[in-house]
């Protein structure tokens, strides 16, 4: 009988120990995290971020403990220089955010995790004594550009454009060419038409005018900007728009190609004709891209939508990043 009692005590002891380890560990784990916000990343189909809004104050550190529950995700805060954190399934990463300006910040997933990847976003509401800085509205709104309107280029170059050759005509060009406003607000095709109409340039052939336009576009950007645009494009755009810009990215593989005759996906008619979404337009198609001004492209990137599934990047990219991206986009057709 003594043995039996001892045996029962042992059983209870062993199981008790196991439960105790569990409970104590649980508690300890909790206590460690009183000042920490734990966020689980999941594919958007499975719920996305477990927390989608965080309230904070300026200059108060936000401690985050991040992990992924399914696939590789990434954590980054848009329009800020907080470092990007890679989230490996089952592993925890801790990071601290600090904001010195009040405002609404968006955190987002940086690694593609399915067609709805871009929906993985959350907001951080930062309160502070300072008033939130008001940014000027983006250029496309200032200029009143309708980014949903068709924007086909009326003219396109017949030969490859060479900005180098265009540089040699720099002295002959009218003054407005050197204003950044001209570059931002006009499509390459319209700049070409305007230059073609200049009597001073009548000596130049059509190809040379295109070379001049190419040169203007090159002058308004920098190799570093294009480089940064290239990497932004690869990380954020290529999965749909294709690595070469042809609109054949892996995420849209199964979608129908946009109707050829409409030739503009922003046409409200084509929207109704397709039950769902279509592939994005071919960015390497000069007809399409040379008719778009940098301000218009920036507008599309900022606002997205257009009934196409294009995400809105306004809360995420800084204006420098958008400029870099736009200048990289135009390199597809040069």
């Amino acid at each position: 009988m003594k043995k039996e009692v001892f045996a029962r005590i042992l059983i209870v002891l062993f199981i008790g120990m196991v439960i105790l380890i569990f409970v104590l560990g649980w508690q300890k784990n909790r206590n460690q995290q009183t000042n920490t916000i734990q966020i689980h990343a999941r594919m958007p189909e499975n719920g996305g971020w477990s927390i989608t809004s965080i309230a904070a104050e300026t200059n108060q550190p936000i401690n985050l403990r991040l992990t992924s529950d399914d696939v590789v995700h990434g954590f980054a805060v848009g329009k800020s220089d907080q470092p990007t954190v890679e989230l490996i399934p089952g592993e925890f990463v801790e990071t601290t955010l600090l904001f010195d300006e009040p405002g609404t910040y968006t955190y987002y997933c940086t690694r593609w995790c399915g067609p709805n990847h871009w929906r993985m976003r959350g907001t951080i509401e930062v309160q502070g004594e300072m008033a939130a800085a008001t940014n000027p509205p983006p250029l496309y709104l200032q200029l009143g550009i309708d980014i949903d309107a068709p924007h086909e280029a009326k003219v396109t170059p017949r030969e490859p454009v060479s900005p180098q050759k265009g540089a040699s005509f720099a002295e002959d060009l009218p003054a407005y060419v050197f204003e950044q406003e001209t570059y931002l607000a006009n499509s390459p095709a319209s700049v070409w038409s305007r230059l073609r109409a200049e009597p001073d340039l009548s000596a130049l052939n059509d190809g040379d005018i295109w070379n001049v336009v190419g040169w203007i576009w090159r002058e308004n950007t920098s190799p570093t900007a294009i480089k940064s645009g290239e990497s932004l494009y690869a990380e954020n755009c290529a999965a749909c728009h294709g690595e070469t810009g042809e609109g054949d990215g892996v995420m849209v593989r199964d979608l129908p190609i946009p109707e050829a005759e409409a030739h503009d996906m922003y046409d409200s008619h084509s929207e109704s004709s397709t039950a769902g979404l279509t592939r994005p337009h071919d960015l390497t198609d000069p007809d399409h891209l040379l008719g778009a001004s940098p301000a218009l492209l920036a507008g599309k990137i900022i606002r997205g939508g257009m009934g196409t599934g294009m995400p809105y990047w306004g809360p995420i990219f800084t204006s420098q990043q958008i400029d870099a991206l736009v200048s990289y986009l135009h390199t597809f057709v040069w």
């Binding site: 062993f14 196991v18 992990t67």
Partner: peptide
């Protein structure tokens, strides 16, 4: 093994989903 069994059930229910 019984205690291990309990432990396994706890870990399965409350442990990581990965």
């Amino acid at each position: 093994t019984l205690a291990g069994f309990v432990f396994t059930i706890l870990a399965g229910l409350f442990g990581p989903v990965v």
